[in-house]
Design a binder for these strands. Structure first.
Lengths: 143, 143
DNA sequence: ATTCTAAATGAAAATCATTTTCATTTACTA
DNA sequence: TAGTAAATGAAAATGATTTTCATTTAGAAT
């Protein structure tokens, strides 16, 4: 996984630095969505010589290459998640603990067509997120 | 419209100040989505003795009461729009000029049920935004 | 009408995430 | 192995939002 991304980076003319490796490893190893600060904290343990700025810059690149994707947190902060090879997907976010579950199959093509027809917009993309309470937080809440 | 909101504010125990009236009038008079700074600027013309902080605070209240709703801008800034009485609606946002068009009828109930079944989440709400290019920006772009 | 009090306000400072700057270092090409 | 453009880190800048706190005020109570 990391190897795949590294190859892609090189092919696109980006240099592969220890910082970028560390950041990548953190993202790949985690199944959660992480804020830049989270990633910094973890990567820093592995490779001390790394700055938060570099994390931001690397995340920008990875995002641009479509290797990670941004999650809109409710408070406006951003966080990132590794893009699954399945491409087009959306998030189901727990409003309590922040856990993120991916899903695909949004079936919004029909709606998109309708909107184009009715408004004249040329639709480029969409953002779909469900907010809810995950099973373990439901359990915790009922205690 | 403004009157309706003012009544609601009073009923909920909020005081009706000239600042709040000015902010309300700005929001009701505008069909666009406005950032807190936009609202401040306009309200300030009408009622000079108003601060940006008060705008933020008032927007928080109006949002909490469901009278306005937040729009996720792509750059992470927020902006607000009067909630139409039609309730549940979503946005179609022009990536070029930022124009926002509301729409209803998202038909996500089916998907929501599927997600609940598959993940055990208790879905509370969802966020759906389409990003695209509005007719006038399309025209401008082809010039 | 006047008094009273909790709520609301504004100015300034604090926060906090993110971006920019710039001098230094480094990955990779030739 | 040397040369160069890209990458880095530290610090400063930015910009939106929030907090603090002393002062004012809306609206209830008298």
């Amino acid at each position: 996984m990391v190897r795949r991304v590294i190859t892609l980076l090189r092919r696109r003319g980006y240099k592969v630095t220890p910082q970028r490796r560390a950041i990548l490893r953190v993202i790949v190893d985690s199944q959660e969505h992480l804020t830049p600060a989270d990633i910094y904290e973890r990567a820093h343990k592995e490779y001390t010589g790394i700055g938060l700025v570099t994390v931001y810059r690397t995340l920008d690149i990875l995002d641009k290459l479509g290797l990670i994707c941004e999650v809109h947190a409710e408070d406006g902060r951003r966080s990132y998640l590794l893009t699954r090879p399945s491409e087009h997907h959306h998030h189901l976010i727990c409003s309590d603990c922040g856990k993120v579950v991916d899903f695909t199959g949004c079936r919004l093509g029909e709606l998109e067509k309708r909107l184009s027809r009715e408004t004249g917009f040329e639709v480029e993309s969409h953002l779909l997120e469900f907010i809810g309470c995950c099973p373990s937080c439901q359990k915790a809440a009922s205690t």
